[in-house]
Amino acid sequence: MTLALAVLEQRDGVLRKISHEVVTGSQRLGRGVDAVLCAAGPVQGADQLGKFGADRVITLTNPAFAKYAPEACAQAIAERAKQGGYRAVLFAASATGKDLAPRVAAKLGVGVAADITDLAALGDAITVTRPVYAGKALLKVKVASQPAVLSLRPNVFTPVERPKAGTPETAAVTVAPCRVVVREVKAAAAGTLDVAEAQIIISGGRGLKEPANFKVLEELAQAFGGKAAVGASRAVVDAGWRAHADQVGQTGKTVSPSLYIAVGISGAIQHLAGMRTSKVIVAINKDKDAPIFKVADYGVVGDLFEIVPRLTEEIRKLHG
């Protein structure tokens, strides 16, 4: 029996990259992975999934799936999960996954072990680790629900390629009429990357002095060639300088990028909680006693308005 059902995401017929992380995380449970996604038709990139450890890639099709259809997707995935008798159903803890996972879980009569950063199968039980209090503590939980429904924190389960082909399958499904309908998706400005999924985050705080000065951080982000997003501290979000979507910290997003650059951020405890799982942290601040330097791997003390533009130049040279 296949152990895990990995629930993938697509948008506009293109597989979202985070899906590879879900397949890789599911693989950690051993004994095989089926991957499933809801789509209106063929999904670009779904044929690549075998490379990340999926034994089968099942596309459930229905015209309702052209846009994210929470109720119809939940119904289709819950039915598939029941039919397959999976031990675990895994989602990405993305905006969509956070919305979909509890809907599916409730239909299966269980809760979600949400936003996990580690998992292991031990006999009959699955044990997971979840950051709580925005990462100020780690909670280890034994999940005995049948099935275990888990969502995986983005950027933690690094996709590992395997020399293996997954079998593609397509099944047309019928779904009940939807009450909740996504009418449109207003796209953010082209090239804008979400802080929750970015590999590199450059965050600014009050040290930027005024909203227009975030331009220096945006220029640095651009120098990384589409891999970097600009984040913000709670102070500047509360002041209305930046959108809440950009906020890193306990009342914003908890992030785990490979590189986090904190610029003009002193390092309040609720901010540190949200970014301390970053792989490498760089702090740039004029106050050498700022708490941010206690968690930073590399610190530069001085005027950010001189340091950041120079760093941008250096990064451009590397990527140039």
Binding site: V110, G111, K136, A137, K140, V141, I281, Y298, V300, V301
Partner: peptide, 25 residues
């Protein structure tokens, strides 16, 4: 069906370093 096994502090980050001061760093 969820049983808490442990609540623990996150692993300490290893001591970082100040690379230097100003653009020269």
């Amino acid at each position: 069906t969820f049983e808490v096994v442990a609540l623990s502090p996150p692993p300490d980050r290893k001591e970082g370093k100040i690379v230097g001061e100003g653009v020269g760093a």
